[in-house]
């Protein structure tokens, strides 16, 4: 079970909000890049987020560039899962490849700062603060297997190939 606080974000948080292009020179210095995570959406996020916390966004989270540094710095910040109403395609795939769960559910029912518990296997989110229980939609099986192994690299190391 994952446990942590909700950090709410609105619609259309792009990869430029998460890791702006102007910081591209830090992409081979990840600890430094991670200090700026989501800087252009909420400059205080990096200093407030704690291990286990959740990003709770609205629609089309992660749209824009294919830069995998976006989910990577979110993971490095300690975020245990991203909850959103919808997520852009490349970002979704990148997050799963890094072993970072992305859960599609009705995030309108969650407020900023709520304490959440997520049961990945059961597909449920419990909002401890307001008592709501939400279910999230299943992801394709191939992605579940990648997530189970902790990401695409450990998955390929184990199986040597994709398995459908």
């Amino acid at each position: 079970m994952l446990k942590g606080r909700a950090f709410k974000f609105g619609d259309s948080i792009s990869t430029d909000h998460i890791t702006p292009g102007r910081l591209a020179h830090l992409r081979s210095n990840l600890p430094e890049l991670a200090k700026h995570v989501l800087e252009d959406a909420d400059p205080t996020f990096a200093s407030k987020v704690k291990a286990g916390d959740f990003i709770v966004a609205s629609s089309n989270f992660g749209l824009g560039s294919s830069r995998e540094h976006a989910p990577l710095v979110i993971k490095m910040a300690g975020v245990s899962a991203i909850l959103a109403k919808s997520v852009a395609r490349i970002f979704f795939r990148n997050a799963i490849n890094l072993g970072l769960p992305v859960l599609i559910c009705d995030t309108d029912k969650i407020d900023d700062g709520d304490e959440l518990e997520v049961e990945l296997a059961a597909g449920t989110v419990n909002d401890i603060t307001n008592g709501n229980q939400l279910t999230f939609s299943q992801i394709p099986e191939v992605m579940l297997h990648i997530l189970d192994e902790g990401g695409l690299i450990p998955y390929i190391k184990k199986y040597g190939d994709f398995r459908l």
Binding site: S66, R67, E68, I90, R93, N94, N97, G151, L152, I153
Partner: peptide, 10 residues
């Protein structure tokens, strides 16, 4: 189609 660095590495 575009993908991220890990997918491309594989």
């Amino acid at each position: 189609t575009g993908m991220g660095s890990t997918d491309i590495a594989i």
